[in-house]
Simulated assay, not measured.
Amino acid sequence: MKFTQMAKANEIERDWIVVDATDKVFGRIITEVATLLRGKHKPSYTPHVDCGDNVIIINASKAKFTGAKIEDKNYYTHSGYFGSTKTHKMSEMLEKNPEKLYKLATRGMLPKTKLGKEMLKKLKVYAGSEHPHTAQIKG
């Protein structure tokens, strides 16, 4: 009889994957990254174990946006106090802090649990083409 093998946390090998965002559509990048962070591209995928890879996004500020999202889309924050809702335009977030924009979008595609938070910690975003993780990347 054959049984499905469940991956254990100590048996998982994590790779470092570099994604170049230059002239790619923002949403397509995020779905690809969410799949890599979850580990769904691996044959040993197990839903209750973090078996994804570490992902580095370079040239984050050079991604393309379809439609009028760049001007029209807003992100909202609320501290819990009355009247404390703040609005941030997507274009401003892309200029000031693209890392936060990419992490917010990716977080929406990951599980809303402790496991999802652990997966999101493996995402590194850089606006330029330089990153400090060259030692981790194989060949």
Score class of each variant (00 low, 15 high):
residue 51 C to N: 12
residue 42 K to M: 12
residue 14 R to V: 04
residue 53 D to P: 08
residue 18 V to W: 07
residue 74 N to F: 14
residue 133 H to P: 05
residue 133 H to L: 12
residue 53 D to T: 05
residue 91 S to N: 11
residue 91 S to H: 11
residue 137 I to W: 08
residue 51 C to T: 10
residue 82 F to K: 07
residue 137 I to Y: 10
residue 47 P to I: 07
residue 110 L to Y: 00
residue 69 K to Y: 01
residue 20 D to T: 06
residue 75 Y to Q: 05
residue 103 K to F: 04
residue 48 H to Y: 15
residue 7 A to S: 12
residue 60 A to E: 14
residue 12 I to F: 04
residue 75 Y to E: 03
residue 6 M to V: 09
residue 28 R to G: 04
residue 43 P to F: 11
residue 21 A to Q: 01
residue 66 T to D: 10
residue 26 F to P: 01
residue 69 K to H: 03
residue 27 G to K: 04
residue 25 V to F: 06
residue 124 K to S: 10
residue 84 S to K: 09
residue 13 E to T: 13
residue 18 V to P: 04
residue 116 G to K: 00
residue 51 C to A: 14
residue 53 D to W: 11
residue 122 K to A: 09
residue 3 F to K: 13
residue 76 Y to N: 01
residue 33 V to R: 04
residue 71 E to M: 09
residue 48 H to M: 15
residue 13 E to Q: 14
residue 29 I to V: 08
residue 49 V to T: 06
residue 116 G to L: 00
residue 29 I to D: 03
residue 2 K to H: 02
residue 81 Y to H: 04
residue 23 D to N: 15
residue 132 P to W: 09
residue 34 A to V: 05
residue 139 G to L: 09
residue 59 N to H: 15
residue 87 T to V: 07
residue 102 Y to I: 01
residue 130 E to M: 10
residue 113 T to E: 00
residue 99 E to D: 07
residue 126 Y to L: 05
residue 68 A to C: 04
residue 44 S to R: 13
residue 104 L to K: 02
residue 79 S to E: 07
residue 36 L to I: 09
residue 66 T to V: 12
residue 13 E to I: 12
residue 123 L to E: 07
residue 34 A to I: 02
residue 73 K to F: 02
residue 134 T to S: 15
residue 106 T to H: 01
residue 39 G to N: 11
residue 8 K to L: 11
residue 136 Q to L: 13
residue 24 K to E: 01
residue 68 A to H: 08
residue 126 Y to E: 05
residue 137 I to E: 07
residue 23 D to M: 14
residue 61 S to C: 10
residue 129 S to M: 13
residue 54 N to L: 03
residue 116 G to C: 00
residue 4 T to A: 09
residue 21 A to F: 02
residue 81 Y to V: 01
residue 42 K to Q: 13
residue 16 W to T: 04
residue 10 N to K: 08
residue 70 I to N: 11
residue 56 I to W: 10
residue 135 A to S: 15
residue 86 K to M: 05
residue 69 K to I: 01
residue 63 A to D: 02
residue 89 K to Q: 09
residue 29 I to R: 06
residue 37 L to I: 06
residue 54 N to H: 14
residue 34 A to F: 07
residue 80 G to E: 00
residue 76 Y to V: 01
residue 38 R to H: 08
residue 18 V to R: 07
residue 12 I to G: 03
residue 35 T to V: 09
residue 9 A to H: 03
residue 67 G to V: 01
residue 84 S to D: 13
residue 120 L to Y: 10
residue 98 P to V: 04
residue 3 F to N: 08
